[in-house]
Structures are given as C-alpha cells and as structure tokens.
C-alpha cells in the first residue's frame, strides 16, 4: 500500500516555491494539483517538455499524405473525369481538401493521444487526494517512500512556505 504526503497552499506563488524546494531536497513529487494552469510550475517540478507536438506533426503529415494521395488516386488513377478542362492531377485544386485532412488528422490524433497517455478516458474514476483542490486550494502530493522519507524535513518546508495544512494519506482502492 502506497503512502502519500499531501500539502495544501492557498496561493500559486507558495506552491511554486515549495515545489522547487521539495524537488531540490530530494523528495519524490507525485504531482501538483491546481485549480487553474500555473505558469512556471512545470519548470519547478522539473518536467520535460511535452512530446505531444511531435505526435501532432506526425498526424498532420499522415493527414496531408492521405489527403493528397487519396485525391490523386481518385481523380487521376481510378476514375479520371475531365472537370472544366483541368488536368486530372490538379494540385492547386487538391490543396483545400489536403489542408482539411491535415487539420482533421492532427486535431483528432493529438486529442486521442493526449487522452490515452494521460489516462483521462471516459468512465475513469478520478483519484482525489485533497477535495479542496476542486475549489481554491493548490496541492502538492509527495510519494512517501517508507525508508527514506524525511517527515520532519517535509513539514519544515511546508511551514516555511505557508502551507495551510498537510496530512498523510493512504492509497485506498
């Protein structure tokens, strides 16, 4: 059974500073929970930049290829039709649809990748470490490793950064 150390703050600045200090003192951060996006928090937590934009680019490229090749195959290979005297393989005319498939693939692909990677799929039951985070609290959750977790140090850092409250929690299935 895992144990967590949950610290709540009432503003974002304390949260970012405390996060930084927890990180520097060698604690294992599980995550930080905030009511809204806090700038600079990812840096304080030491998170790597998201790789989602690369996924987005790949999906966009696949969409572009499918859009262009699909139209080429339909209108120049499989069933050539003379439209207004234009050549069968009319690239400028293919552009709008290729653009749309690019956007469609990139958009849907990115969203579903994000849902899959973060596990926020429909029907998932959320784990709530501190109910107040859904209102106005800023919460840091530390993983409490029994051997090396220094509770005194953690409480000290929490006090310095004006934490509102801290508590230990057990993972309840």
């Amino acid at each position: 059974m895992k144990k967590y150390f949950v610290v709540s703050f009432d503003n974002e600045y304390d949260l970012v500073n405390a996060t930084q200090e927890f990180k520097n003192s060698g604690f294992t951060l599980l995550d930080a929970f905030t009511p809204y996006a806090v700038h600079g928090l990812d840096k304080a937590m030491g998170l790597k930049p998201s790789r989602l934009s690369k996924i987005c680019f790949m999906f966009a490229f696949i969409g572009l290829t499918i859009g262009l090749y699909g139209q080429y195959w339909i209108s120049a290979v499989n069933w050539p039709i003379n439209i207004g005297g234009k050549p069968w393989n009319s690239l400028p005319g293919f552009m709008p649809i290729a653009f749309e498939t690019t956007v469609l693939f990139a958009g849907l692909g990115t969203v579903f990748t994000l849902l899959w990677r973060t596990g926020v799929l429909p029907g998932r039951k959320p784990k709530i470490y501190a109910p107040d985070v859904t209102d106005d609290r800023f919460v840091i959750v530390l993983t409490k490793d029994l051997r090396s977790f220094n509770s005194e140090k953690a409480e000290e850092i929490s006090t310095i950064h004006h934490a509102v409250e801290w508590q230990e929690k057990l993972e309840s299935e």
């Binding site: 207004g84 005297g85 234009k86 400028p92 005319g93 552009m95 709008p96």
Partner: peptide, 12 residues
C-alpha cells in the same frame, strides 16, 4: 495568397 490564386486558377 493561395485563396486568391486558386479561385482565379479554378474559374479560369
């Protein structure tokens, strides 16, 4: 740029 170009190219 492309919007202007393509519509004129298409309508001919």
């Amino acid at each position: 740029w492309f919007s202007q170009h393509m519509l004129i190219w298409y309508a001919n």
